[in-house]
Design a protein around this nucleic acid. Sequence first.
DNA 1: AGTTTCATATGG
DNA 2: CTCGCCATATGAAACT
Length: 548
Amino acid sequence: MAQNASVLVAVAAGEAGGGRLRALRDDGSPVGPVEQVHDFAGAVAARELADAPRWLWASTTPIYAGLLRHGVRVARCHDLELTEALLLAHDGRWGQPKGLPAIWARLHDLPVPADPPPPDTNPPGQVQAALFDELPTTTAFDPLEAVIEGYANQLARVAEAEHVGRFRLLVAAESAGALIAAEMGHDGLPWRADAHDEVLAQLLGEPSAGGGPPRRLVELTDEISRAFGGARVHPESPAEVLRAFSREGIVLPSTRAWVLRGVDHPAVPLIIEFKELYRVWTAHGWAWRSQWVRDGRFHPEYVPGGVVSGRWATRGGGALQIPKVVRRAVVADEGWTFVVADAGQLEPRVLAAVAGDPRLAEAAGAGDLYAALAADAFSGDRARAKVAMLGAMYGQTGGAAVPALAALRARFPIAWEYVERAARTGEGGGLVRSWLGRTCPPAGDERMSGEQARARGRFTRNFVIQATAAELALTLLADLRRRVAGAGAQLVFFQHDEVVVHTPAERAEEIVDAVRAAGEQAGRLLFGESPVRFPLDVSVVRCYADAV
DNA sequence: AGTTTCATATGG
DNA sequence: CTCGCCATATGAAACT
């Protein structure tokens, strides 16, 4: 590549499919003039084919959705708004407006406009960018110039981060995640209506004609009413269920399933079954499918960085809470298969790595961390080792796990101190960061009561682990995306520590290797030559429900 | 009637 | 074992 070739291209999508582009050097300084194009997607596609630059834009979600609809994909980008959120939080300025107009206004000492509210739940296919409809009308504001200025400013601020190299990795991973989220939402998760119908028919019976409760729910309602002596009870109403029990002399604090399980009454198993089925009917039944599945694909709208810890969220569709039974409907296309990979025991492994506790790291070098932990410090009792580990990461203080926690503390003092320190920082009103530098939001109130402070301590204690786990998963995903692109496979689902690849069946072994390589690479990128391993449980299955 | 909160389920 | 973390989504119940 020629010495002055640009590696970055700043863009601003315009109206009617047009847009403007400007090539930049590595340091963010412009190389050539502003290029005005009428076919924005076409221009991006041509440039991507020529030398695959890093695309610099205000926000991936709206711009890339438009490109994807034109069949255009890119390898790399820098998402200005997501990066701004990371930088503001790193600076203790969580929650300030991060949209392009706000970024620009801060640079020019002008009043900072509020960000537009997130869009309401969109019906599938209607996700549309209105990004540039709501910009200030100031003549000085130019979206493309604002993107370029904002980038130069962000480069300088990133260089001031506490751990610069790590923070750069975080910015890259966050931006790559935004590309992947848009692609996954666009491509969708294979969803077979006939298999879904089979599950629903088996659980619920046939749907009723008027959209009312299906046969099995009607039957259960009758049986429950009979179990209460014949008076009509609506089991979907917790208040009514509590009243029905109290008429029988049974007073309950709630109708939660685990409370009911402790009650000896003929209605209990019926109510529990009703709740499970009612849930499937309302949240993942026929109505859900007609809203979210089209042409054999479920299209959720992922929100990268939507959770404070850096995990993704979704808007609508409940993609991250698909019940296991319903996953029967996720079936690979004919001649295709799924490679499902799950980063097991991710959070304790992350703790071992970030704390640098050699003894815990040794356990985390094993395939089953809890078993290794048990052999080391819990006389082989794996279950006890696991509750102790979870209790330490969540800040458990009471219950049966207390002696196990003491054993953990005695045996792994360095890891223990790492989470304790995070908790103390939170209790004292301080901020904590993930390994790559994602910073937690500040406490809501300046002065915290004792219980509030303890709750805040549990939050910051867990944040340092959960947020680091999220960035390991994101790094893995970004690396995997590069690896699967050449095999004609697609990433179709991602849920915190689990990824599903849809691949031509004959390429499955290649994808399995790619997944394992991505896992190892992600561990190395974050933690260098740490002995901690991040092994993946990998299944090759035609149906998602069959993944182990 | 429309909006907010509660209760309960699901996922990690 | 319901404890301690992060979420979304639904309908019912409680409000304005």
